[in-house]
Design a binder for these strands. Structure first.
Lengths: 200, 200, 200, 200
DNA sequence: AATGAATGAGCTTTCATTCAT
DNA sequence: CATGAATGAAAGCTCATTCAT
């Protein structure tokens, strides 16, 4: 039994290695663009080993994406919990995303072309944030607009910058670069005494 | 010359047929997912004929996307020209998009994975709208917020719904379904006397 | 009838044009490497026209090679006729070849991969020279060695330099460059009072 | 390690099988004329396997030609080493070639149309012989003619017979058939007291 | 459990040849 | 006669997946 345990431990280790290796490569090169053998060689295991742990390429993608999406969701959740204001929450969100920026960007770009489970996992991150968003919105003195639209507006905005990161931040780090302005602008729109108007 | 004309007319017809056939299939199945031979058989021409008109698959994708992006941009432009208010403009935008909805959605989903020319053509549509957006914004009494962010917020919002159309409108027609609420909500945020507040 | 005549004259003209165009391209790029459409466009006729004059690519190659091989043979013959000495004949031979050097080189390189008629035509050039070679050899006071071998030795030598022209004369013009030394050396070997010996 | 060894041994075996199979087919049908799938099926492996061992068709041709050219060069070298006279050397040369006759003939015919590495490998065989030729020539009491031309004359002569083997020896085996006469004739030309003359 | 050689379906691209105009 | 668009048989190459060791 000891043997079995150490064996399966070893197996789990290898699987974990494959998952984290895939994460790195996916972040760098994109998800669809990576071949199974690329992951194998990057992880220093044999090509066949990848199939020992994942029946198909689809399964591997699904698992890797699920694994990291759960992490991102958890991270988002954690950073969001202490937030009492929308500003805090938005910052927390961007902070969470920026920890996984490259990978998250790939998900934004490719999610619709991935196996359904991967897509679902990606959506789940958004649900996690959505929950906190609703909570905070209730507390704040905020316009009586559909919360879901406001949330989607924020998500859309952030994803738009990630999707076009090459245009907005050719040097990389879109989130860091636009963090403040995105947050500020979004919040301004929600503020009561609105904004200074440009009156002709 | 008459002969020549009818000959090359025929050729142009075939090319046009291929472009419109590709458009249909791309709209239905996605762009990356389609094989050259699919287009050939859908257009009822031989496999080789496709290569007579487009040197490579990449060239075909580029041409088809450019062709329709120009149309979408032109349509956007045309519908935008008469617009004096932001509301009119946003409606015009959604109207333009909804005419090409399935294809446009594919672009939203796949643009970053397409040949660079295709991506550029897609971006060009956004530039076209951006121009009118700026014009209208100047006229309106609007908060002194960065116009570009406001524009990107709108684009992000619309693309977010298109990207996730299967979640927002499983029956199809996301744009038609969310047209009003998206426009209204977006405009509300920009309005002076803001919005009724939810005060606890 | 006049029409017919002028028609078929035109046709013959076109065919002649195709043959000479093919000759030029074959000389430059090799025979096997050239596509039917290359010849058509170089001759400023349509792709289909080539097939009007030559049923197949093989037929075209055969005809072109035959046509020019006959010319080369005739030229060789003509230049050989006045020759009374072997030296004169060898010079005549090289002179004939050098007029068609690029094309002749292609034949040396590719003859065995061409349609049988083309190969035969190429061989016929050698037969033509062979005839004069025998004639001259009889007149000269030459070693009683098998004339055919001597002839083949000369042919082999010349072809060896043509086959490896890129090594022997990277700037081109192998024949011009080695004309003298090849002739001299070959003749020296046949001379009675032989050659100065290197005696240790 | 034992496992690894037997595994990679197997792989090497397969590669060796492919190389020798290619050699056989090339010898029979020519080099350019053979498709990758021909080699696969002749070797009883799948089409894909060929590409496991050789990245491209060009690479395969290069490797196969290099492999056998090295063997031929080595064989030539080996047989040449004991030779003290030119006669011995020429015989050794022909013996070496005749062991690989069909393949060598293909090289003579196609060398200029093959990948550059293949051509170079073929040239290297000639360099190997050239070395011994020079050595022997120095020892012999031989006319003070350019050694390189004499060498090229011999090579040209042999290649001429190989190139036209179908004419010289329709039953095959040109080398065997002309071995003696070629050697004798070539040597006669180099002999001091030359040759009996045919005096009119 | 791990290996990595082997598999083969699948896809793009080329080009000689045909044929309607 | 000439045209050139259309055809479709090849062929090379890729890569997820399998399986014997």
């Amino acid at each position: 039994m000891n043997t079995k345990t150490s064996r399966s431990q070893k197996k789990e280790q290898t699987k974990a290695l494959l998952i984290s290796t895939a994460y790195e490569i996916f972040s760098e090169r994109g998800i669809q663009a990576v071949r199974m053998s690329d992951i194998a060689s990057a992880a220093n295991v044999s090509h066949g080993t990848v199939f020992l742990h994942f029946n198909t390429q689809e399964a591997l993608i699904a698992e890797v994406v699920q694994y990291y999406c759960r992490q991102i969701a958890a991270c988002t959740h954690e950073l969001s919990e202490g937030c009492h204001t929308l500003r805090e929450l938005l910052s927390a969100h961007l902070e969470a995303i920026s920890k996984y920026e490259l990978f998250y960007k790939r998900l934004v770009i490719e999610s619709r072309m991935l196996p359904i489970e991967a897509r679902d996992a990606f959506i789940a991150i958004q649900s996690a944030l959505s929950f906190h968003f609703s909570l905070v919105l209730e507390k704040e003195d905020v316009p009586s607009l559909p919360a879901s639209i406001l949330f989607n507006m924020w998500m859309g905005l952030v994803h738009y910058y990630l999707m076009n990161d090459d245009l907005f931040a050719p040097q990389g780090q879109v989130i860091a670069r636009y963090k403040t302005i995105l947050t500020d602008t979004f919040l301004s729109l929600l503020e009561k005494e609105s904004h200074p108007r440009i009156t002709n």
